[in-house]
Design a protein around this nucleic acid. Structure first.
Lengths: 240, 240
DNA sequence: GAGTGGTCTAGACCACCCC
DNA sequence: GGGTGGTCTAGACCACTCC
């Protein structure tokens, strides 16, 4: 179980062991984890070493400690909704709005240097460029341009884009979208954004750039969106 | 410097001492921090205790360690993802900017209905209202108004506000800030914001409202901030 | 009072970096 | 080789929770 003569640190072995138990569901949210002293005794290691493993898992949000009581598997109640990556459609549904979409253009173009760097591909490599107006309750919510590597995601067609790109990637191609990073900034609408979003030029907009990744850090998609500030707010929760 | 007979843990005292040095600019990005053994010797404490302080500062993004070389003040990073709830000061340090603050006003006022509902207190109950200009590298970054229930957080004074409200709450009052929720939206600067932030009226700003909570969901603070859009981006990572 | 996590000690050896 | 951080030990006492 724990190899003391392994080059892998003991605290790390214990950490992975516990993660496994949690991820396999053998320890569910709220369950008490064996005490630090129990693990120290069981594996004949120092309690400080057990603490080192526990501490990291606490920092990663797997466990929480209560002095005098014990160590418990964390509820992911708060953590999950905050960090969950959603498609536009999922986001709107969660907000109680009816999602909609108008395709403006869909084509394969050579990647610009910016897009290439975001997708970690060669400049001029083929990418799908998908421009859409995103609607909520039939009113424009955002103007969105999405870039996807054509060499990674093959066979994307207009009908698929009108359905759901995420479903195609996850279900048809069986690639697992794992995480995304977003950069959010404020700006004001230019002429194009004003026209498509039906707002005045100079009206506030929220620019969101998003990269999405597979588990192995391969970038899948790069999206630039301009949201109407009068209709869209971004909410997140964070742990101290 | 370090009080060994204090009820405040030694590792925590050392942590704050180091944070101060960094925030006051006495230790700049890339500078080597005294070694673990040096601190252990200097304060006559165990090296493990020094490590505990260092480890937390590494996790918070203040320091980074290089095996065989030493421990260094973290480099400036342009876009630092926010995984955890940070004070303005912590946020700026993580971005490699020097945080600063100018107090505009500090008073006790009766809570408006909006503030009362955010803090889960009665309307007209006394709250501290703290208005500040937040600086990054000595240039205005945000205009911030913070509301704190005067019945929950007693004894807040101007000198404390000029130091660190979070430290006061967490260290002196021994209340543990646990999580926060933020609402981010885009807007344009009004006359007041334009004046304090030294931007033009109508320039884009990012409005961030934040509630912070203790573990038992008691709201501690409600903050409304207007960030200069040309200087501030919000970055977050999310799991699918 | 028994058990838990929180803090702390005074060492030890290892892996790594730099001279 | 000398110094750094990385890991680990085998204890100790404290604060807290629960009974």
């Amino acid at each position: 179980m724990i190899k003391k003569d392994s080059p892998i640190p003991i605290y790390y072995q214990l950490q992975e062991l516990l993660k496994d138990l949690i991820e396999k569901g053998e320890l569910g949210p709220g369950d008490a984890v064996p005490t630090e002293r129990e693990y120290a005794e069981k594996f004949q290691i120092s309690r400080m070493t057990v603490r080192q493993a526990f501490t990291q898992l606490v920092n990663e949000g797997y466990l929480h400690r209560i002095q005098g009581k014990g160590t418990f598997v964390a509820d992911r109640k708060i953590e999950q909704p905050l960090y969950r990556l959603r498609s536009f459609t999922e986001d709107m549904v969660a907000r109680g709005l009816k999602p909609g979409s108008q395709l403006i253009s869909f084509e394969i173009i050579p990647a610009s240097s910016q897009v290439a760097s975001q997708l970690a591909i060669q400049e001029y490599a083929p990418v799908y460029e998908i421009k859409r107006i995103r609607l909520a309750d039939d009113v424009p919510m955002a103007l969105e341009t999405s870039y996807i590597s054509a060499n990674l995601i093959k066979g994307l067609t207009e009908p698929i884009v009108k359905e759901s790109v995420y479903s195609y990637i996850e279900e048809v191609l069986d690639l697992q979208i794992d995480h995304g990073s977003q950069i959010i900034e404020s700006s004001v609408a230019n002429q194009v954004e004003a026209k498509f979003l039906k707002i005045k030029k100079g009206a506030p907009i929220m620019l969101i750039q998003q990269q999405t990744f597979l588990k192995d850090e391969t970038p899948v998609e790069y999206v630039k969106s301009s949201y109407r500030a009068d209709r869209y707010k971004f909410m997140i929760e964070m742990k101290r």
